[in-house]
Amino acid sequence: METEAATAATRVVAPRTATGFEYTFPAIRGIQAGREYYVSMCPLRLIPKIFIFDEDELSPELRAQRILNKGRLPALTKYILDNPEDYVFSALTASVDGAMEFDSLGTDGISYRAGQLRIPMDAQFLINDGQHRRAAIEQALKDNPDIGNETIAVVFFHDAGLARSQQMFADLNRHAVRPARSIGVLYDHRDSEAYIARVLAGRSEVFKGYVEMEKSNLSARSRMMFTLSALYYGTQSLLQGLEIETNTAADLAQEYWEQVDKSLPEWKMVRSRALSAPEMRRDFIHSHGIALHALGRIGNSLFRESTAPSRWKKRLTPLKKVNWSRSNADWEGRAIVGGRVSKSHQNVTLTVNYLRNHLRLGLSAEEQRVEDAYLRGEA
């Protein structure tokens, strides 16, 4: 059953123009760069029906937006379906190729800005920003039609031609900056692994006070040893596939990293102020994201053999003999490429292989393939 709000959001009314029936949106009128635009709410069930994309077959110069990346849709759709009570989507931005008439509620003040926006049903609605949200909404509606009466904000501009639409796309995306992964982990209260990373950063003697919580890169002078994103990915690889309760997982992860800490004296030296964090990061690689990720994968292998501390802790003993210094030529091509630490998937695997060999752990078939390619000089 439709809610009153959803029913009021968009109506199809009797024809008032020669072109046919109209959509009527309750809207607010605004002005940008001397042009009127309108903000309204649209029921999700109407989004797939009235908003279109450019044809994928058109060449880029004839389109007003990028081609839909269908690989993004499963995650966006799952986000809606898994969080029906607290998902959040920002507004869609659309150009309307057709007449738009705005009926104000009054002649001045707020009443002049508020009213009804009337758009002929034969007008075309082209999304300038939000095509992936639109496609995800369409997919989610198939699995959960009940969300059809919920609404999303839509900003309507008059379509002033292809060049203007292309410029709108460029302008809307020109200054878009993806937030640092660390702050995403800090603020994510749905992801249990993000929760575990925050717990470790807050209570483990290894990490407390030495984790950068917002940025995913450390400045040369930062007193921090790790980033929250590096801790997140390292712990994620550590716990991957282990079916244990979240708090138990957090305890296990803390025990593991504190055991690793015993084999890395430089970490303790920073905490005791015998060595500065910038000096440690400059001369060693074991606090970098690639090292935490690799150590996490090593721990995951040990946990799969046995989560009994007496067993996996003993297997970590040879870790003390690993030379983590940047000057160690063994890291070139593995963790370091051209003098810089690399976090590529291949380099993570090569770093894992190096540690496995030191700990006398076998390589998987994929790890062996990457290792063989590296030894042949193909990596």
Rank of each mutant, 00 (worst) to 15 (best):
M1E: 10
E4R: 14
E4N: 15
A5C: 04
A6V: 02
T7S: 15
A8V: 04
R11W: 12
T19L: 15
P26M: 07
P26S: 10
R29Y: 04
G30E: 09
E36V: 04
S40H: 01
M41P: 02
P43M: 03
L44F: 01
L46S: 02
P48T: 00
P48N: 03
K49E: 15
K49L: 11
D54T: 00
I67Q: 14
R72F: 05
L76T: 01
E85V: 13
F89L: 02
S90I: 06
A94G: 07
S104V: 02
G106Y: 03
R118I: 11
L126N: 08
I137P: 01
K142Q: 10
G148W: 06
N149T: 05
E150T: 05
I152W: 00
H158T: 06
A163Y: 08
A163T: 14
S165L: 06
F169V: 00
H175K: 14
A176K: 14
V177L: 07
V177P: 08
A180T: 01
R181V: 11
D191Q: 06
E205D: 14
F207I: 03
G209V: 04
Y210E: 08
M213P: 10
E214R: 08
S219E: 11
S222M: 09
T227M: 02
Y232A: 00
G234F: 01
L239V: 07
L242I: 08
E245N: 13
N247Q: 13
Y256F: 11
W257D: 02
E258M: 06
Q259E: 14
Q259M: 10
D261M: 13
E266A: 10
K268L: 14
K268W: 12
K268Q: 09
K268R: 14
M269D: 15
V270T: 08
R271F: 11
S272V: 07
S272E: 15
S272M: 15
S272L: 15
A274N: 14
A274G: 05
A277E: 01
G289T: 11
L295S: 02
L295H: 01
G299V: 00
N300Q: 13
F303P: 00
A308Q: 15
P309K: 09
R311E: 13
K314I: 09
K314N: 07
K314C: 06
K320S: 11
K321E: 15
N323P: 13
N323C: 13
S325D: 11
S325Y: 05
N328Y: 06
A329K: 15
R334W: 07
G338T: 05
G338Q: 08
R340Q: 13
R340S: 13
H358Q: 14
L359M: 10
L359R: 06
L361Q: 05
L363S: 03
A365F: 12
E366I: 12
E367S: 04
E367K: 00
Y374I: 01
L375V: 07
G377D: 01
